[in-house]
Nucleic acid binder design. Structure first.
Length: 462
RNA sequence: GCUCCCUUCGUCUAGUGGUCUAGGACGUCGCCCUCUCACGGCGGGAACAGGGGUUCGAGUCCCCUAGGGAGCGCCA
């Protein structure tokens, strides 16, 4: 059997990391089994679905390189098919017309809640003999007895009593199918073999299996992934800092880090923390997933991100950094190679956004000093030292790190100053602040012309 | 309220009846390295939710309690 898994988001909210992890696992499983990965947009909620949200989903998938083999399919383009199946179910008696008004249903629900009962449809229209006038919905005739069992990839054997289930609406009064119905029809038509989705769908599963049964089709294999919680223990939402995938790019989180973090959240492979894409595909398995929900930890994501900033080839990171520089409209002409900047900055940055901000002085003029730094380090008595360094640097035959280092050492010794006493003033002069990579490295990257200019400027400070 | 599910350091987890005086990672604290910031190195503190069983033996099996999660829509 060829595995066919799908990711089926609804374009109603942002593509947050919960969705992303679902997509990742469904994708990994397809890749691991050399199966087919399908993207399907569940846009039957006409009120809330937006084209913009669809675009975000598409962009997110592309950004993380979660390639799909089929799709994207849109449910709104399959209305004829849903109608066809609806007629079939109506004809076979597995579904029936319900004429109850929304008002009646609301009152019914309110009443049940008040009496501390489980809110559900009272099956008022279930046995109506003839068709009535007016608008109606199609409801599913849920079996009265028995239970639905399925072997969940994550949770093992799961069982629901049919008596707990409602006669759910299959088709709205405007003819648009509801989620539970459309999913089944789509999964049948798209020959989906593995349904991998969030645990919030586990209660829907028996309803859907009943529909499969009514259609005479075999249900797929299910795997319900545990939820991701915010740090307040509540289900993750925008409110809890659950940023969209695209926002992580803006923050400067590498796709590799995001994927690695999500992979490891609620899943493990012994004590291993770092996984390449190949390893993720090789090691992934549902039975290693945790059953309980996991809390999202931004700190660990940051750590992973820095790990990748440090270990990925500098050119690869540089490409991402370029994007940040473009966003910030930093003019890079005449500055060092970005890969060089990455080489010296990776170990001092958690994100690419931070790296871009901390690297401005390689490209932009230093127009003002951090006040505290300047008053502490750009003192009158250091100016002769700076002058001497400037003079010697100007005469250097080649502008390279080692030679620069020697100049600074020599001048420091000549003035009987510790290296730190000299390095900090230089650092303030060329970066405007007290923080930068090693001073020789920093000057080497900034370049001779800019370095000398900045040293001169520092000497006329105050 | 009802149904279902879950419960190891602050967080992510290892652990499938003896090898657990419970291991790793992030974070945190201390020390070292050091021209700043970092990186790195070394070390510390930190958990089997509680109570009953079963067993020679329980983090591991069973039950109860507590806590948490999901669902109960003409949302997905």
């Amino acid at each position: 059997m060829i595995v066919r898994s799908r990711f089926a988001p609804s374009p109603t909210g942002s593509m947050h990391i919960g969705n992303l992890r679902t997509a990742l696992y469904a994708w990994l499983y397809a890749r691991k089994t050399k199966g087919v990965f399908i993207l399907r947009i569940e846009d039957t909620d006409r009120e809330r679905s937006t084209d913009q949200a669809i675009q975000v989903i598409l962009d997110s998938m592309q950004l993380l390189n979660l390639t799909y083999d089929e799709g994207p399919f849109y449910q709104t383009k399959r209305m004829d098919r849903y109608r066809e199946i609806t007629d079939q179910l109506l004809k076979t008696g597995h579904a029936y017309r319900c004429y109850c008004s929304k008002e009646r249903l609301e009152a019914l629900r309110a009443d049940q809640m008040k009496n501390k009962q489980k809110p559900r449809y009272d099956r008022c229209c279930r046995d109506l003999k003839e068709k009535k006038e007016g608008s109606f919905v199609a409801r599913f005739r849920t079996p009265d007895e028995g239970s639905i069992k399925f072997d969940d990839g994550v949770r093992g054997l799961v069982e629901f009593q049919n008596s707990e289930l409602d006669d759910l609406v299959l088709v709205r009064s405007d003819g648009v199918p509801t989620y539970n119905f459309a999913v089944v029809v789509d999964d049948v038509d798209m020959k989906v073999t593995h349904v991998i989705r969030g645990a919030d769908h586990i209660n829907n599963t028996p309803r859907q299996i009943n529909i499969f049964n009514a259609l005479g089709m075999r249900p797929p294999i299910y795997a319900h992934l545990p939820m991701i919680l915010g740090n307040d223990g509540k289900r993750l939402s925008k409110r809890h800092g659950a940023l969209g995938v695209l926002q992580y790019r803006e923050e400067g989180i590498l796709p590799a880090a995001l994927l690695n973090y999500l992979m490891r959240l609620g899943w493990s492979h012994g004590d291993q923390e770092i996984f390449s894409m190949e390893e993720m595909i090789e090691f992934f398995d549902f039975n290693k997933l945790q059953k309980s929900p996991a809390t999202f930890d931004p700190d660990k994501l940051s750590w992973l991100n820095q790990h990748y900033l440090k270990t990925l080839p500098t050119e690869v990171v540089a490409k991402e950094l370029q994007w940040q520089m473009d966003q910030k409209q930093i003019d890079m002409s005449g500055g060092p190679l970005l890969a060089e900047v990455v080489r010296v900055q990776a170990e001092r940055c958690k994100t690419l956004n931070e790296m871009a901000e901390k690297s401005r002085y390689f490209y932009e003029e230093v127009t003002q000093y951090d006040e505290q730094a300047a008053s502490k380090h750009l003192t009158p008595d250091i100016k002769p030292v700076l002058q001497e360094i400037a003079t010697q640097l100007a005469q250097l035959p080649a502008w390279e790190k080692e030679a620069i280092h020697q100049v600074i050492i020599a001048v420091s010794e000549a003035h009987q100053l510790k290296l730190g006493k000299v390095a900090q003033p230089i650092r303030v002069a060329v970066t405007g602040n007290t923080i930068s990579p090693p001073i020789d490295e920093t000057l080497a990257l900034i370049g001779r012309e800019k370095t000398l200019k900045r040293l001169q400027r520092a000497m006329i400070y105050k």
